[in-house]
């Protein structure tokens, strides 16, 4: 029975071919440092899942953001767990992505033919930091408010166009409901979309080029 269903699907989807190309391929023997990439992906997926469920109760408005998070923490069953995972997952993801970058650097894995893999990876590191920055304004607490004030002010010091960048980030000259709304939008739509696209390219390249090997002394 299962055999038949599989045959039917394989004929149309090419499952065997995908299995051969993606899973059943030879790769160099590598050490535990090479698990950091998949760990980053795993954390991204966890952030995605918990994040989606947080938006079920979270309200991106200065009046209600703080209260809605209080409700998530105290009023909703397991809200503390979902938010706890999302909160700590963010820190852990920054750490793991950074370590992944260092591993790639110290093994020289960014060299030919993997230049574009590095390029997408470094953009992913920046987007991860962007997720962190936009994410922690959302609770509208003291840390969020002041870190965003200082953070956007930093962008505002760019010579010439600084004021414009500041207003573009804040959606006006003040930190306001507009700022919160656009940070929320960036945090749940724009940046994750960018991350998903870049991860796709990153993974395609890893499958196409194979994972790098631990360089030997003569390399």
């Amino acid at each position: 029975m299962f055999e038949k269903i599989f045959q039917w699907l394989d004929e149309r989807l090419g499952l065997e071919a995908i299995y051969g190309a993606v899973l059943d391929r030879k790769v160099p023997k590598v050490n535990w440092w090479f698990t950091l990439g998949s760990a980053s992906l795993f954390l991204f997926v966890m952030q995605g899942i918990t994040g989606i469920f947080l938006t079920m109760y979270y309200v991106p408005s200065p009046d209600k953001a703080y209260d809605s998070i209080q409700y998530i923490m105290n009023g909703v069953a397991f809200g503390w767990l979902i938010r706890g995972i999302h909160h700590w997952g963010a820190s852990l993801m920054v750490l793991i992505v950074f370590l992944h970058m260092l591993r790639t650097f110290f093994y020289g894995a960014y060299k030919y033919p993997r230049e574009i893999t590095w390029l997408t990876g470094s953009l992913l590191l920046l987007l991860t930091l962007g997720m962190g920055f936009t994410g922690y304004l959302l609770p509208w607490n003291q840390r969020a408010y002041w870190a965003t004030t200082v953070g956007t002010e930093i962008a505002g010091t760019v010579p010439g166009i600084g004021d414009f960048i500041l207003r573009a980030l804040r959606g006006g000259s003040d930190l306001s409901a507009v700022t919160l709304a656009r940070f929320f939008s960036a945090h749940i739509w724009l940046l994750p979309l960018g991350i998903v696209l870049l991860i796709s390219v990153h993974m395609y390249l890893i499958i196409r080029l194979g994972i790098s090997n631990v360089p030997g002394e003569d390399e």
Binding site: T50, A77, L81
Partner: peptide, 15 residues
């Protein structure tokens, strides 16, 4: 460990 709490999380206001 994630799925069960999420179900509780989603339905808890209904309870």
């Amino acid at each position: 460990m994630v799925g069960v709490p999420i179900i509780g999380y989603v339905i808890s206001p209904a309870l």
